[in-house]
Design a protein around this nucleic acid. Structure first.
Length: 147
DNA sequence: GCCAACGTTGGC
DNA sequence: GCCAACGTTGGC
């Protein structure tokens, strides 16, 4: 899961303990969230920083339910085409697990041959994307060997 | 801050 | 249902 650190960083997640992942307004990203189950592990990625990087881990603690910001006219995430009866957008709740001692930059990830097929490497625009177990474990390993 | 890549919208 | 125009994301 990607977040712009200016908007909601992993330190914000540490402070909150857990949070609802509101504001996803892309169908592919939404569909990926709808596949998540309680207990699923999440890599936490900071986009739009230099360099962009995986900065830690979280886990899913509540499966998808309607994103309330879509009904809030005050919110920038408001969607007039959505209704409570027929919501377009969903969110999940995630809980903080770990902040890596050293960030795993996108540059380093791109250097790893076993990670060549990661969605992160091939479709940089998707904000919620699937990670295979192999990829997940590989990145976790990288974070442990760097610290 | 720029701009390529991608997603969405809407006219036809 | 195609595709041009537009808006957004995110790496650089």
């Amino acid at each position: 899961m990607k977040s712009e650190p200016d908007v909601y960083s992993i330190d914000d997640l540490i402070a909150d303990g857990r949070t609802h992942w509101d504001g996803v307004r892309n169908y592919q990203a939404r569909n990926n969230m709808m596949k998540m189950a309680v207990g699923d592990e999440v890599l936490y990625y900071h986009s739009r920083q230099t360099p962009p990087a995986v900065v830690g881990r979280a886990k899913v603690v509540r499966e998808f339910y309607p994103d309330f910001t879509q009904f809030d006219e005050e919110s920038s995430y408001f969607d007039a085409r959505s209704s409570e009866e027929n919501p377009r957008w969903q969110m999940v709740d995630v809980e903080f697990v770990e902040k890596f001692d050293s960030e795993i930059s996108l540059t380093e990830i791109k250097e790893q041959k076993p990670l060549a097929d990661m969605v992160l490497v091939n479709n940089s625009r998707l904000s919620v994307q699937p990670v295979s177990k192999k990829e997940f474990d590989w990145i976790l390993q990288m974070s442990q060997s760097q610290s």
